[in-house]
Design a protein around this nucleic acid. Sequence first.
RNA 1: GGGCCGUUAGCUCAGUCGGUAGAGCAUCUGACUUUUAAUCAGGUGGUCGUUGGUUCGAUUCCAACACGGCCCA
Length: 523
Amino acid sequence: MNGKAKPDMRARESSSPVPENEQVARRREKLAAHREAGAPYPNDFRPTASAARVRTECGGLDDDALGTRRYRIAGRLMTRRVMGKASFAHLQDGSGRLQLYVRRDDLPGGAYQAFRRWDIGDVVGVEGVAFRTRTGELSLRVDGLRLLAKSLRPLPEKFHGLTDREARYRRRYLDLVMNEETRETFRTRSRVVDFVRRFFAGRGFLEVETPMMQPLAGGAVARPFETWHHALDIPLFLRVAPELYLKRLVVGGFERVFEINRNFRNEGLSTRHNPEFTMLEFYQAYADYRELMDLTEELLRGLARAEAKRRAGDEGGGAPGADGPAAPAVAWQGHRIDFGPPFERLSVRDAVLRHAEGITPDDLDDPERIRRSARQRGIALDDGAGPGKTLVEIFEHEAEPRLIAPTFVTHYPIEVSPLSRRSDDDPSVADRFELFIGGREIANGFSELNDPDDQAERFRDQARQRSGGDDEAMVYDEDYVTALEYGMPPTAGEGIGIDRLVMLFTDAASIRDVILFPHLRPA
RNA sequence: GGGCCGUUAGCUCAGUCGGUAGAGCAUCUGACUUUUAAUCAGGUGGUCGUUGGUUCGAUUCCAACACGGCCCA
């Protein structure tokens, strides 16, 4: 190394998470030489095909037919095997990889020497004719090539790739370059969102966008992020849910609406919580929570079937059938989750009785005994927690992790359901359900409370809990009550956690694996 | 918040019962016109997470801290 490079490297170390090293210095020298030679970052190369398209078009062709297929493709150089005057390399683009065969004698003078100086990671454009190698791999015999963007930093190792979880989250671009599973996870995520969108659009739902910044953070029991609007000189809250705005739209006459967007909750980070997460919420007038359970089953079964079909197609096409590869089931963290059979429906109370060992119906009916049961199980209760909240705490502790197969849980206590319609049969419970899959809450839906006086009373009750120390309790939203006073049609609404749904379809154990840039503590 | 584990070369990982470190890939030099974790020969590359402590000497032992992982609340 020459004496000049060193201070230069040092100067960069302070501002970069990855220190520069000798390899970077060498690549910088190559870039400098490349700059001397002319435009180092050209933007006039236009591919005629992707790697996948070359594969599709040439898949069944014989050698003679392949010889008539000329392509320009562009991508990142991922491997290189130089054998004197000829080389093999793999180019990776957004669709996959294609092998290149580069011979000195097929190229204009000097081009092969230039190619030999390129590095793994460089973005290049090549042109050539398809052929099949001795071992049968479809490849491109290159007769023209250009460097489109120099890569100054060495990529992770070609065989093990990037495995360090922290590095994969913090520098997702490298994870994406190196790991096909990661690329596939986020393609799956896109397909899931696309399926959901078409599902609702196809049923007459209008897609809308409601405020992410709200003067009151309502619609869910959660701690909000707070920010400040300088011109108005008022605090604003990042929304914890779009619910109260979507229902205002139902008041306005949009009888079927949905929104897919981010919610923000100022709570801890974990394998199942990211401070910002994506939620689907939808509202349907003249429907009740039972009909939403049916709709939810239809949505998830359809999604599972579409994904299964796709997988079967990728594997060369298995015969679709109840138990064939296209069955609407997924493998998730060692479980087989089948969306085919009707989802089980049971009450919170029955779920607790089934899964919480040693709890009897008498325990649940007695306010003192239910609190004692919770304490015995190590559940910390707020002083103000009534029997309903306590029951739900026990449910979450004992039953929720065991609800692996899709299960609707119903009959939630009214005290934990401040926006839900009161049941006609039992005023202590709401016309509400939550859906659990893989031991996780996936959806929460209910017949909406459209009685403005009842809603006002529920808000007052929340306000009391708030002044009693529960800073997650809801705040009184006067304008929302006013909207209800104009009259909201009988309506049912639901929220589905998109990230958790995607986890099921990508066999992900952590929500960070399905969020491109998950929040981490700054390094 | 608690417990356990991890942090060593660009990446994946060994290792040092305390004497300033190794492998594979990558990189560099050379050979090689059908390879594919190419091969062969020879090199370069490290503030061993940070800060303190113990010690003649710490990457190694101890403590605190930082970041991450897993489990628990």
